[in-house]
Structures are given as structure tokens and as C-alpha cells.
């Protein structure tokens, strides 16, 4: 019997945000692997499928995360090669900020195994809901280290979402929830201040991980950001600085149709 791979996400609030199709995949798999930081989510998953095995052991302080991801991919794909129907479970949306999930799909498909990914609810989805943001007005989204190092052009008329602001410049893994690199947050504040000024208000956000807990929503100015309570789970929301001006000539052309 040929092996197969299905990669799913639990949503940020595992259990309540896990989609029915993801749950069906979890329950029907012959082997479930997971990379979930939350103990409640792992416990729940184990009940849904007793074959569940956490791959969090591949993370280690001082170990480069790329090496961890390769270990995860190798473990999952090798099980598929054994002819097993495997389900890989991650937090949030399995395709968002998840190199290993995409890579294991790529490898499995290249070897001829059926492999698919099911969408899940990401931290950004929770942010839109909790902060009342409609991304249709324009929204840029970057991983924070890439944003600081790559310096992409900022569109001041769009909102800006920066992921993983608590681990800027940290390629490894550390235990604990406090920001792994506070000086990275200070550097980020410096970069943003160049465009928005020190008094621009931003939101340090952390989605609620449980149905019975609250999201973390801290509104601070960019001047205050370096001292704000930032964790490794924090996402930064930067609102646009002004509504986007319309192009009168283009508007006229549309009206003339």
C-alpha cells in the first residue's frame, strides 16, 4: 500500500479552530506527527489519534532551526516511504511560516506519493478578527528579521503586519516565552520610526491560544515599542499612516466608461 501525506493545522486555538476536514484527516491517519508548542493541544491530539508523536524533540537550544526542520522533514517523509498514511499537524495554518510543511510536501510529491495540505486559521486571521482589520484596504506582511534585513519598501497607505518580532536575528531556539532578542525589537522600532515617526501607534498582538483565554493587545507608540512586553508569540500590527489618495485621472476614466 503506498504511503501518503496530509499536512494540516490546528488553528491558533487548537480544538476550537481545527477544521472538520483537518480533524477527519487526523483521525483517519495511520500515523500522526505534530509540532505543537501547546501542551493542551498535544494532549487533545493524542486523544484524537493515539499514534500521535511529537517532533518537538528535534528542537534544542543552540541547534540551528534549519537543521531542526530538516530532521522533521526526514522523519515524516521516511514514514510515508514505509507505506503509511501520515498526517502532519502544525499550529495555525500549516502553510504559513512553515518551511518544513512545504518541504515535506515537495519531497513526497517528487517521489510520487499523494500529498496535500489543508488550510487552517493563522495568527493573521485571528489578528484581523480581534483588531477589527479589513486587509482589503491593503496589507503588507513580513517576517520581522527579513523585514529588518531586507528593508522592503513600505507602503504607508497599507497596514503592515510583522511576524515573530520577539525572535529577530535569532536563528536558533531558546526556551521560554520572553523575547529571545530584545535588541532586535529596538532595531525594528528604529527602522519603522524612519517611515512613521516616533508617535505612530502600533499594536503588539498575541492571538488567544485557548477558547477561555484572552488575546494580548498592547497599543504603544513606536517610541515605546522597545520597552513594550514582547514575547516570542508576538506579532506587530502597524496601521497605515493615512488613507490612500485616489488617482483622479484613473477615477475619471472609470467614470467615463
Amino acid at each position: 500500500m503506498p504511503g501518503s501525506l496530509c499536512v494540516v493545522g490546528t488553528g491558533i486555538r487548537a480544538i476550537t479552530q481545527t477544521t472538520p476536514e483537518a480533524l477527519a484527516c487526523i483521525e483517519s491517519a495511520q500515523k500522526v506527527y505534530c509540532v505543537l508548542g501547546d501542551p493542551l493541544a498535544r494532549h487533545w491530539l493524542l486523544r484524537r489519534n493515539p499514534s500521535t508523536e511529537s517532533l518537538m524533540r528535534f528542537y534544542a537550544p543552540g541547534k540551528h532551526r534549519l537543521a531542526t526542520y530538516r530532521d522533521v522533514v526526514d522523519r515524516v517523509v521516511s514514514k510515508v516511504r514505509e507505506g503509511v498514511a501520515v498526517c502532519m499537524v502544525t499550529t495555525g495554518h500549516p502553510g504559513v511560516f512553515s518551511y518544513a510543511a512545504h518541504e515535506m510536501l515537495r519531497v513526497a510529491r517528487s517521489e510520487g506519493y499523494p500529498a496535500r495540505m489543508l488550510p487552517g486559521i493563522s495568527a493573521e486571521d485571528c489578528l484581523f478578527a480581534d483588531l477589527g482589520i479589513d486587509p482589503s484596504e491593503g496589507c503588507q506582511s513580513y517576517e520581522a528579521t527579513g523585514f529588518v534585513v531586507g528593508r522592503p519598501p513600505i507602503d504607508r497607505y497599507s497596514s503592515l503586519v510583522l511576524w515573530q518580532i520577539g525572535s529577530i536575528g535569532e536563528p536558533g531556539f531558546k526556551r521560554g516565552r520572553d523575547a529571545w532578542n530584545p535588541s532586535g525589537v529596538a532595531l525594528l522600532a528604529e527602522v519603522l520610526t524612519e517611515t512613521y515617526g516616533p508617535n505612530h501607534e502600533v499594536t503588539v498582538y498575541e492571538a488567544a491560544r485557548y477558547a477561555f483565554s484572552n488575546p494580548v493587545v498592547q497599543r504603544v507608540t513606536l517610541a515605546q515599542l522597545r520597552a513594550a512586553p514582547v514575547s516570542v508569540l508576538s506579532t506587530l500590527y502597524v496601521p497605515r499612516s493615512a488613507p490612500r489618495p485616489a488617482d483622479p485621472a484613473m477615477a475619471q476614466r472609470l467614470r467615463a466608461r
Binding site: 524533540r57 499550529t91 495555525g92 508569540l233
Partner: peptide, 22 residues
Amino acid sequence: EEPDVHEEPMEAKMETHQSAIL
């Protein structure tokens, strides 16, 4: 599975952009 009692609760996403840059 034995519980991963050594683990701290944290976001366990597996992004690569940051790691590749660094």
C-alpha cells in the same frame, strides 16, 4: 507518547525565511 514535559509553551512554527537569512 509521553508528555513533552520539558517543553515550554511557545509558537512552534517552522518558518525558514529568518533562519535562511541568518
